[in-house]
Simulated assay, not measured.
Amino acid sequence: MTLRSWATALRQRLLSTTEPPSHHDLPETFSISPDALRLALLEYASAHEAAMRWTGYAGLAFSLWGSLAVTDFSFTHPKFGLDGRQWQLIFVVAASLATFRALTALAKYLRKPSVDALIAQVLSRGEVAQEFRAICLLKRRSSSHDYRILVYRDALWDCFLLPHYNMANTSLRDINDPNLRDFIACEIGVSPDWVTIERTEGTELRSRKHSEFWRQGTIYRFTFFIVKLNRGAGFPSHLSDREFVHNGRDFSWLTLSEMEADPNTKNRNLDMTRHIADRATQLLRQPPDSL
């Protein structure tokens, strides 16, 4: 096998066993300390420097093998204390060693870290914010036959958001989770006994966007729960109003179009409204109305 064919076979084997990195969960922005970034860049530069050494060894090996091909080693009188056969043996050993080093360095070159590997290394040393949220979806069909969703005006984001519960480091039941029932009951001012809540399968939303809280790119995972309210004695009448205030929050029953008509909501929460629109059958048409 020639050097070229060996290198080609090695490169194909390495490429066939290397999976391209996934960009699905890459945040738009993140934070990292200067020391951590410096260390990642130094490791990347060191690996690239070691990978490029194969050219020097290859040039040396080529020169030595070329010298063996054109040099006459038949002389018997010593030159610098060695005869021709001894000099030939030294050249063969040196050329073989240089060839071996060139091939091992070439293998390192073919395995040199890519830009994607550098990004992954930097991300592993950085701080990436992640949010896991349970979306409590309350919806009803109005007299004009459009679907209206209960949202509130969030002061931090300055846009309309659906009620949501932090799922980080928690495990929620698929049906009538007590913590989730108590959360949404407090949000809208009803008894937890009147709340029925159930997870919808196949509607999870994964999104990447800037977080106003973290002040950096954040990976979000939203799980949708359909909320049904069972009317009982003393059921609050404000839930039937188009707009109402509870616990200092301004709630509204809005259509998706009305939400997106708000500039800040369209800019900051379009992933949510489009996701609901794309899965309207599962999230709006099939489940019973919340009221």
Results as ranks from 00 to 15, higher is better:
residue 277 A to L: 08
residue 195 V to F: 07
residue 19 E to W: 00
residue 126 G to A: 12
residue 255 T to Y: 04
residue 51 A to S: 14
residue 199 R to W: 09
residue 255 T to M: 11
residue 274 R to E: 08
residue 291 L to C: 02
residue 43 E to N: 03
residue 122 V to E: 04
residue 30 F to V: 04
residue 88 Q to I: 10
residue 7 A to E: 15
residue 123 L to E: 14
residue 196 T to I: 05
residue 256 L to A: 12
residue 101 R to T: 04
residue 188 I to C: 06
residue 263 P to V: 13
residue 169 N to K: 10
residue 39 L to A: 13
residue 91 F to H: 04
residue 254 L to G: 08
residue 104 T to D: 13
residue 258 E to N: 11
residue 120 A to L: 12
residue 34 P to I: 14
residue 211 S to I: 01
residue 164 H to T: 06
residue 6 W to L: 10
residue 166 N to Y: 06
residue 130 Q to R: 14
residue 215 R to W: 02
residue 136 C to Y: 14
residue 281 T to D: 13
residue 143 S to Y: 10
residue 139 K to Y: 09
residue 133 R to D: 11
residue 35 D to A: 15
residue 140 R to D: 03
residue 247 N to C: 00
residue 27 P to E: 07
residue 35 D to K: 12
residue 286 Q to L: 15
residue 37 L to Y: 14
residue 247 N to T: 00
residue 265 T to M: 07
residue 37 L to W: 09
residue 50 A to W: 08
residue 262 D to P: 03
residue 288 P to L: 06
residue 41 L to Y: 05
residue 267 N to S: 10
residue 279 R to L: 14
residue 113 P to M: 00
residue 174 D to L: 03
residue 37 L to F: 13
residue 191 S to F: 03
residue 259 M to S: 07
residue 16 S to W: 01
residue 189 G to M: 00
residue 151 V to F: 04
residue 4 R to F: 08
residue 132 F to E: 15
residue 74 S to F: 06
residue 288 P to W: 04
residue 65 W to L: 07
residue 277 A to K: 11
residue 173 R to Y: 10
residue 8 T to P: 09
residue 255 T to V: 12
residue 181 R to V: 04
residue 283 L to F: 10
residue 173 R to P: 07
residue 39 L to M: 06
residue 12 Q to C: 08
residue 109 Y to K: 10
residue 48 H to T: 03
residue 193 D to L: 05
residue 278 D to I: 01
residue 71 T to A: 12
residue 80 F to W: 10
residue 92 V to I: 13
residue 27 P to C: 10
residue 195 V to W: 09
residue 272 M to G: 07
residue 288 P to F: 00
residue 256 L to H: 07
residue 105 A to G: 07
residue 106 L to C: 12
residue 81 G to F: 11
residue 96 S to F: 02
residue 151 V to N: 06
residue 213 F to N: 10
residue 153 R to N: 00
residue 154 D to C: 01
residue 143 S to A: 13
residue 120 A to V: 07
residue 48 H to P: 02
residue 108 K to A: 13
residue 269 N to S: 12
residue 185 A to L: 07
residue 214 W to F: 10
residue 220 Y to T: 09
residue 35 D to H: 11
residue 106 L to G: 08
residue 77 H to N: 05
residue 140 R to I: 04
residue 187 E to C: 06
residue 14 L to Q: 14
residue 274 R to M: 04
residue 200 T to S: 15
residue 171 S to H: 05
residue 114 S to C: 05
residue 160 F to P: 03
residue 10 L to Q: 14
residue 270 L to P: 03
residue 108 K to T: 12
residue 202 G to C: 08
residue 272 M to S: 08
residue 15 L to C: 10
